[in-house]
Each structure stands twice: as C-alpha cells, then as structure tokens.
Amino acid sequence: MNRRKLRDFLGTKLMLVVTVAVSLLFFSIFFLLLFKSLLIFEQHSLTEILFSSSWNPGFNQFGLYPIIVGTILVTGIALIIAVPISILSAVYIAEYAPKKVRKVIRPFIDVLAGVPSVVYGLCALLFLVPFVKDVVAPWFGIETTGYCILTASITLAIMVFPIIISLCVESFHAIPLSLREASLSVGATKWETVKKVIFRASAPSVISAVFLGFGRAFGETIAVNMVVGGITRTPSTLFSPGQTLASLIVSAYSDMMSSPLYESALMMVALILFIVVLLFNIFGIFVLRRANKRWNV
C-alpha cells in the first residue's frame, strides 16, 4: 500500500473510532445513571417515587411529585409564553422587516442565544424577582417573595426566545421566493401568504425549533435555581415557590455524599431527565416525519 492510500485508510478508521466512541457515551451515561439509581429502586417503588409528595432525604422520603409538578409548570408556562411570541417575532423579521432592520436585529438575537444562562439568572434575580413580587402578584392580590414558578417560567421564556426566533427566521428564509410569488399572484395578502403557505411549508422546521426550545427550558438548571424558590412542596399557585428536577440536583449535590441512598436518589433524578429528553427527541422525529409527509413541498 502506498502512503496516500495508507493515509486514506488510517484517516477513515480514525474517524470511525472517534464516532463510535462518542456514540458509546450515550450508552455509558445511560447505564451509569441506571446502575447508580438501582439502590433507590430497591427500597422505594417507582409509584411511590413518582407520586408521593414528600421529598425529605434525611427522613428517607424520596417523593418527586412536587418537583415533577414544578418542572412541568415551569417548562410548560415558559413555552406557552415563548412559542407564540417567538414565532410572531420571527415572522416579522423574516417577512416584514426592511432589509436594514433585519441585518441589525439578527446578530443581536444570535448573541442572545449564546449568552451564558447564569447571566440570565442574575438579571432575573435583580429585575424579575422584584417585578413579580411588587407588580405582577399584587394585580392578582397574592403575596409572594418573587421567587416562584412564574418568575422561573418568564426567565426561561426569555432564554428560549432567541433560539426559537433564530431557527424560525432561518426556516422562513429557506422557503423559495417562488412559493411566495405563487400565493401572492392569486391576490393573497402578505398575511394570508404567511398564514396559509409559509407556516405550512416551514412547519417541520418550526416544530424542531420548538422542540429545541423545550430541551433548553427543560434542562436549564442554574438560572431556574436562582429564582424558582427551591422549595420541594407542590406549588399551589404560580406565585408559590417550587423546584424543578434539574435545579434539585444542583441544590442538593453538595449534600448527596452524606448517604448512598441520597446519592442514588439524585442519580435517579438525572436518569429521569435523560429519559425525558430521549423520549422527546424520539417524539420530535415522529412529529417531523408526519409533518413532512403531510406538507412536503
């Protein structure tokens, strides 16, 4: 074998090995988490863990229900706020804004998407917490410290905006001009074109953008931890303090070495995070396929 062919051979094999190693990470992490969680499953049933509402590791109580509720509320409300606003903003940037405005806005949004989450957390701590405490909660006649589910949701929504906007703008831009012309030339207005043609043609990409936004919101740890309140009680209102799965791990990891059972419990929380993200990815692929099948252009 001459040297060129040898290099080609080695290069190919090296890339293969690296790729296999990276893929193996997936399985190693999964099995590590599973293995470490076994201890807690030996002593507590899955139903008890998922549906019991007392989390009190010192007293051998590992009910995740309040934290699961907190996670669903925080992530769900964040997306309810973020998705419509982001999509409307993306439509404006991609379809309506003059070229100059577009050129100025886009880099800002891309930078926002890359700002470390702790910065968002700090800003939320300084502005959002007092705002929710002094302005929003009094509207509803509720007293709160400001460290609550709603504050965490708004913080996450703000963090998710730039991701969804950026991806949606890109997907709107990828739609051929001629498809717009096809709609406009039968006398449709711009908004009719956006609503009936652009949204449909870009549905698969918009759906992936929302899923990515979900991933970011669901897994976000530090910014949530700074404002959510960190109380493991089932929240009674959106102004109650709460806890999320990811935030729980970061709050508790310094204590977790105190008992093997506590450590195992946190590993199990990590396993839940892992599995949910995995399921959502699979679900995402499934939804994308359906959307593509239905509306492929």
Binding site: E181, A182, S185, V186, K196, W295
Partner: peptide, 20 residues
C-alpha cells in the same frame, strides 16, 4: 396591490404547488 395581482395569474418556470 393584491387586487392588481389577482387580475394577473402567474405560471412560473418551475411549478410551485402550495403545501396543501
């Protein structure tokens, strides 16, 4: 403008069926 366009159908180089 939509009213002007409505009076003139367009057939483009490549067909672009709407996603429906």
């Amino acid at each position: 403008v939509p009213d002007i366009r409505k009076k003139m159908g367009l057939l483009s180089q490549k067909p672009y069926p709407l996603p429906m």
